[in-house]
């Protein structure tokens, strides 16, 4: 059995690869956007996995813990703080992309990226 950290790293990698595949090869613009949200989630999961510590505890300092024990056990809380921001940014970018996609659908009557974005000039 592989350990949890490695498995989580692998799955975050597969989220990124699935997302990249969708963003590059799938024609439908909504699915492209879904793929981009997977890339975002994979990157977030990668950061969280970095902070993980096997047999660790949640980084919340509770009464009754000594600082030495807490420092030797707790997960690294800095990436958690970073990811919180990054999740919100990802959601807002997604909302803007969907809004533009809706405008483009009204203009071209299609969700296909090759039709919507095809004309270069």
């Amino acid at each position: 059995m592989i350990d949890t950290q490695l498995a989580a790293l692998l799955s975050s990698g597969s989220f990124i690869i699935i997302g990249l595949y969708a963003a590059i090869f799938i024609d439908n613009i909504i699915k492209k956007i879904i793929g981009l949200s997977f890339i975002e989630e994979g990157a977030n999961m990668f950061l969280i996995t970095l902070a993980y510590r096997p047999d660790g505890i949640v980084p919340i300092f509770l009464p009754g813990m000594t600082p030495e024990w807490f420092a030797s056990k707790s997960a690294y809380p800095l990436p958690h703080a970073l990811v919180l921001t990054s999740i919100v940014i990802g959601a807002s970018t997604l909302a803007i992309m969907l809004a533009i996609a809706m405008v483009l659908y009204n203009k071209h009557g299609s969700l296909s990226a090759s039709v919507i974005l095809g004309d270069k000039k």
Binding site: A23, E40, I89, T93, M97, I100, A101, I116, L117
Partner: peptide, 11 residues
Amino acid sequence: MKYLLLGSVGG
């Protein structure tokens, strides 16, 4: 849209 799509990969 194109700029934002590329941006969501680059970010």
